[in-house]
Design a protein around this nucleic acid. Structure first.
Lengths: 135, 135
DNA sequence: ATAAAGCGGACTTAATTGGTCGGATTTCAA
DNA sequence: TTGAAATCCGACCAATTAAGTCCGCTTTAT
C-alpha cells in the first residue's frame, strides 16, 4: 500500500514529543501512550528499538524512562524509518530489500534501474526532513 | 514496509513493455507473462484494471489483446500506482487514505502536517517519472 | 464449432501488521 | 528490604492485506 506502518508513525510521534520536551527531560512510555492515545505495549516495543538504535537513552527502574539523545536537526525521518524497519536502507522494490535474492523475475526485470532511481529521489526527500522540522 | 506491491511492479513492467512494442502493436497477457516470467492470472487482473482505467485498449476474442493508448511521455508512474491501488491519490499516512476516518489518534496526532508535506514531495518524484523514462 | 483471447468474481494461502501477554530485570524510595 | 514503577524481551494471537489460483463466462477470428 506504500504506507508507513503504525510502528513508524508511533516512532515519529514519540521522537517529536521527546524533541519538544527538551533533551534534559526524561519521558516514559506511559506518558506518551496516554498523551497521544497510543497502544502502550506496541509503543513500548518501538521505544525499545529506538533505544537500541541509540536515538534515545533508556533508564530502567522507578523514575526511569527515555531521554532524547541528539540534536533534533540531525535526526532524519529516513533514519527513524530504517531503524524501525530494521534495514539499513529503504527500498520500494522488493528484490532490493530482501537479502535472500529470491526474485523470480530477476534476469528479465526491466524496471529495476528506473525504480532504483526513484528510490534515490525518495530517499533524498526523507533525508531532507528532520525531527526538528516536525515540531 | 513502504514498498510497491507486486501488482504495481507487474503493471509497470507491462506498461513499459507495451510502450516499447509501439502503440500500433497488439500484445497479449500471455506474451508478457511468458516474456517476464510473471504469474499469468495475476497479471491478467492487472491488465484488466489498466484497461478499465483506460491506459490501454482491450480487444477480446482470438487475436485479441491490448494496445498502449497514450504517449508514454504523458503516463506517469504515479498514475499507474493510483490506478492499481484504486485510490485517486497516494498517501503514506493511513488516516489520509482511508475514507472511513477511523483513526484513533486523530485529534492528538502531531505528525500529520509534516507527513503531508513529505507526501507532496514524494508525489512530485513519482509524477516526474513517465513510462517513457523507463524504456 | 472451436480455440484463443479478455472479463470478473470467488476463493485460498501466505505474509505482514498490529496488538497483547507474561515474565524478567532494574531501580528508586518508603 | 520490600513493593511499585519502569524498561526489556520473547512468544503469541488476531486481523488485515497481498499474492496467487480457479472457474465459468463472453467475445471474436478462423
Amino acid at each position: 500500500m506504500f504506507q508507513l506502518s503504525k510502528k513508524i508513525e508511533y516512532a515519529l510521534i514519540a521522537m517529536r514529543h521527546m524533541a519538544v520536551s527538551g533533551s534534559g527531560n526524561i519521558v516514559t512510555t506511559k506518558e506518551i501512550a496516554d498523551r497521544y492515545n497510543l497502544p502502550y505495549d506496541l509503543l513500548a516495543k518501538v521505544m525499545q528499538t529506538l533505544a537500541r538504535k541509540e536515538f534515545i537513552s533508556s533508564y530502567q527502574g522507578v523514575r526511569g524512562g527515555y531521554i532524547f539523545r541528539h540534536d533534533p536537526r540531525t535526526v532524519k525521518v529516513s533514519d527513524i524509518i530504517s531503524a524501525i524497519e530494521g534495514k539499513p536502507s529503504l527500498s520500494i522494490i522488493q528484490c532490493e530489500s530482501d537479502d535472500t535474492n529470491n526474485c523470480i523475475i530477476h534476469s528479465t526485470c526491466t524496471i529495476k534501474t528506473p525504480l532504483v532511481k526513484l528510490q534515490t529521489s525518495i530517499n533524498t526527500v526523507l533525508r531532507d526532513m528532520s525531527i526538528m522540522e516536525m515540531v
